[in-house]
Amino acid sequence: MTVFVIRRLLQAALVMIIMSLLVFGGVFLVGDPVEMLVADDADQAERQAIIKSMGLDLPFYMQYLRFIGNALQGDMGNSFVFQEPAMELILERMPATFELAIAALLIAVVIGIPLGIYAGLKADSWMSKTIMTASILGFSVPTFWVGIMMILFFAVILGWLPSTGRGDTVELFGIPVSFLTLDGLQHLILPAVNLALFKLSMVIRLARAGTREVVHQDYIKFARAKGLSTGRIIGVHLFKNIMIPVVTVLGLEFGGLIAFSVVTETVFAWPGMGKLLIDSIGFLDRPVIVAYLLFVVGLFVFINLVVDVLYSVLDPRVRLQEVKS
C-alpha cells in the first residue's frame, strides 16, 4: 500500500513538472511580459530595471526555477488588473466553483444512479429506452447552449429563477456559500443543473452498464437463492458492485467538473475561478492565467491520486493485488 502510494506520488510530481513547463513555456516565452508591464512612455532605463527585477535577463532554466521556487511558496505574481496576488484571487473564487461542482455532482449521482439501475434492470421497457435516448442527448447537447436555453425559459420567459450571480451567501466555517439561503439556492439551481447534465448522462450509462453486467452474475442469483428481498439485492449486492466504477469515474470527473465550470460560470456569470480565467484571458492578465492553470492542473493530479487510493480501498480485490506486488 505504501509502495503504491509513493509510486503514485512520484508520478504525480512528474506530471506537475511537465505541465508547469508547458504553461510556463507557453505563457512566458510566447508572449512578452515586458510589453504588458512597462508603460508606453517608459525610457530604456526603466525597461531594464523591470527586466532585471523580473529576472527576464536570466537564461531559460534559471527563469523557470525562479518561477517554480516562487510558485511553491504560493507566489504566482500579482494580477495586472486587480493589483492583488494572483493566487489569492483564485482562492477567493474557489468556494463558489467548488459549491457549483459539488452541487452538480450530487445532482448527477442522486438522479443518475437510480435511473441507470432501472434502465439496466428493465432494459427492454419503454421507460428505459427513453432514459437511454435522453442520455445520448445529454452527451450531445452543447452545455453552454443548454445553459442559454435554460436562461431563456426559466429566467426570461417564465421569470422563475435568476440567471446571473450567486445571490445571497452566508458564511459556513468562514467560507461563503449560497445553498443555505433561499436566494442563493435559487441562483444555484440553473447553473448546477446545467453543469450536471453531461455527468448525469455518464452516470446513467455507467450505472446501466454495471447493472447489466452484475445482474447476471452468479452471486446475484445466489443472493436471491438466500431469500433476500429485492430491495436488499439491488440496494446492497448490486449497488456496491456498480459503485466501484461509478466512484472511480466520478472521482476523476470531479476535476472535469471544475474545468467545465468555466463554461457554466461564463454563461451564468457565476463568480468562480472559471469566470475569473475567462475574464483574465480577455484582459491578458498573465499571472492569473498561469495561477489558474497550475492550480487546476495541480488539483487534478491530486484528485487522480486520491481516486487511485480510494479505489483500492473500495475494491478489496485491488487492495490485495497491491499488497502482493
Partner: peptide, 19 residues
Amino acid sequence: DIQLSFPAILIALVLLATL
C-alpha cells in the same frame, strides 16, 4: 495515459490561453 487523465477542455484551455 497522462494526457487522457485530463479533461479535453482543460487541455484546450491551457493551449488556447497560451497560444
